[in-house]
Write a protein that binds this DNA or RNA. Structure first.
Lengths: 110, 110
DNA sequence: TCTATTCATCGTATATAGACGATAAACAAT
DNA sequence: ATTGTTTATCGTCTATATACGATGAATAGA
């Protein structure tokens, strides 16, 4: 998408699409589940669970970080990542609201 | 992604990611809303509402079709598209379930 | 200080997505 | 039949996403 196309759509539509995009890769779904199921959140453990290289996992972690879905504390050699539960609930709420609002528009169409 | 990477992840993770990917573009969010808010569903009206060419809108419609989120009846020159309400509810349910299951794993992490 | 470990980032290569003009296909209406 | 309208698809170009080896940065421990 070119720069001039960045504001073709409403902020709300763009926001929703961006959220969906974060979840649009199985690796990121898997990473969220791994982090959610452990109280230890060291990066290396995530890498060990995934069929991807360390560099690739790190990239996916960055995407999740930038979306606020996880928090990360880079403590020297070891990085500790953790699910941002509040944000995750917020995203769930936004998606649920959109579905609810849209389905509510239901008319006898077609 | 190469072909050999198609089955790197579980079917469930892939399924969720695929669903999210369908919603990961503002045009498709907008199209769903347009279709949901009208009981007339002619393709041309969708094109008129979006800042995209007819060809591009048609591509997005195809993605939504393949995901089952809309139904389309190509009736000669005019195509009638319509939100597949059951499928939309199903997708909402799947996403909600994943969030619920994941959040339920919440531990005192980090 | 030196080494080993861990992880982010860079560089790069490939794949997919997105956009659109042009064209084809399918009719409706004359 | 011919014309006009509507929409799907093709071809192509560009942008973004994904993947990974290599490197650099940061630190713990010898």
């Amino acid at each position: 998408m070119a720069k001039s196309q960045a504001d073709r759509f409403s902020k709300e539509h763009q926001l929703l699409a961006d959220l969906a995009k974060v979840l649009s890769h199985p690796a990121r779904i898997a990473i969220l589940e791994v982090l959610a199921s452990r109280n230890v959140c060291v990066c290396g453990e995530v890498v060990a669970e995934l069929p991807l290289s360390q560099a690739t996992v790190s990239q996916h972690l960055k995407v999740l970080l930038e979306a606020g879905l996880i928090t990360g504390e880079i403590e020297g050699p070891k990085s500790c990542y953790c699910v941002n539960w509040n944000r995750l609930a917020e995203v769930q709420s936004m998606l649920t609201k959109w579905f609810g609002d849209t389905i509510q528009l239901k008319l006898n169409c077609c």
